[in-house]
């Protein structure tokens, strides 16, 4: 029997993305976000969840997609993200969250090769769910692009792979 892993699927600009369930801490409704001065554009601010503060990032802005106003389906996903050797709780704003699903490891495909280098290091792999592609995030690399930390970028996916 093929080995499967569980992923949380989420929708972003009509496409389906996936995240390893291990990293997911909690899913929340959209709520008011306290803004932070001098924060980068994709960082919306901070929220309080049961006494703990989390920074909130807009996935759309992070992926250079145009921003949209929040709807009923908009969700905040609290994740454990490994940053520079430690795990940080960060909230991501997604258009919607679908479900927790199993994806076969074997069915994961590599990043398509176009013969040149493109900004594709945030992708861990591309899975399938029915006839739809599910783009699996590599959270460590995704955040590494943010931090501009050379060490963080050096060994990013070891923790993720585990």
């Amino acid at each position: 029997m093929a080995e499967t892993a569980q992923y949380l699927t989420l929708g972003l600009a009509g496409e389906t993305f996936g995240m390893a369930i291990r990293n997911v801490r909690e899913i929340l409704d959209m709520r008011p976000i306290s803004r932070l001065p001098h924060a980068p554009e994709f960082m919306l601010g901070m929220i309080d969840v049961r006494g703990t503060g989390y920074p909130i990032l807009d996935l759309r802005l992070k992926l250079d997609l145009p921003p949209v106003p929040p709807t009923e389906a908009t969700r905040i996903i609290i994740l454990d993200v490994p940053v520079a050797g430690r795990v940080v709780g960060i909230g991501f704003v997604a258009d919607c969250v679908y479900e927790v699903t199993d994806i076969e490891e074997s069915s994961l495909e590599q990043i398509p090769d176009v013969g040149g280098k493109w900004k594709s290091d945030y992708i861990a792999g591309i899975g399938r769910k029915g006839d739809r592609f599910v783009i699996i995030f590599d959270l460590a690399r995704l955040m590494a692009g943010t931090d501009v930390s050379a060490d963080a970028a050096a060994n990013p996916s070891n923790d993720l792979a585990a």
Binding site: I21, R22, V24, I27, L28, R75, V97, E99, V100
Partner: peptide
């Protein structure tokens, strides 16, 4: 119903994180 949905999703997440022990709960 929405809140319930969200709770169920979170429960699924917790179940998945629990691994084999969470299967039934999932």
């Amino acid at each position: 119903a929405r809140q319930t949905d969200l709770l169920a999703l979170n429960a699924a997440v917790e179940a998945a994180r629990a691994g084999e022990h969470g299967k039934g709960f999932a």
